[in-house]
């Protein structure tokens, strides 16, 4: 790939500027209640949209992924922290893979 360096730099610089410009430039506290509530909900909405339906295709097998999702949901509901939830979910998907 002869233009690797050019494309790598363009990719990295574009990505950095997208992250940096608003983060560095935005220096005032937003007064609008609507916008503050909007920003409060954004992270959770982002997570929802990133997880479903993509989680069902994360393992390449719908049934192992579904089993992993259910395990993660139940454990999270019971209040387990991130790491055990992720680890057990993977393990469940791996084990179910021997059955389906």
């Amino acid at each position: 790939m002869h233009n690797y360096w050019v494309l790598l730099l363009v990719m990295a610089i574009t990505t950095y500027l997208i992250r940096m410009i608003p983060f560095a430039a935005f220096r005032f506290r937003i007064k609008s209640r609507f916008i503050r509530d909007f920003l409060y909900y954004v992270p959770y909405a982002v997570l929802g949209a990133m997880t479903v339906p993509y989680i069902f295709y994360a393992t390449g097998n719908f049934y192992t992924a579904l089993a992993g999702f259910i395990a993660a949901f139940v454990l999270a509901y019971k209040g387990l922290s991130l790491l055990p939830v992720a680890a057990i979910s993977c393990l469940v998907a791996y084990l179910v893979g021997f059955v389906v």
């Binding site: 997880t51 989680i55 992993g68 999702f69 395990a71 949901f73 387990l80 922290s81 939830v85 993977c90």
Partner: peptide, 9 residues
């Protein structure tokens, strides 16, 4: 699946 399970958590 790990990253998605983390999102769920």
């Amino acid at each position: 699946l790990a990253i998605y399970a983390m999102f769920v958590a």
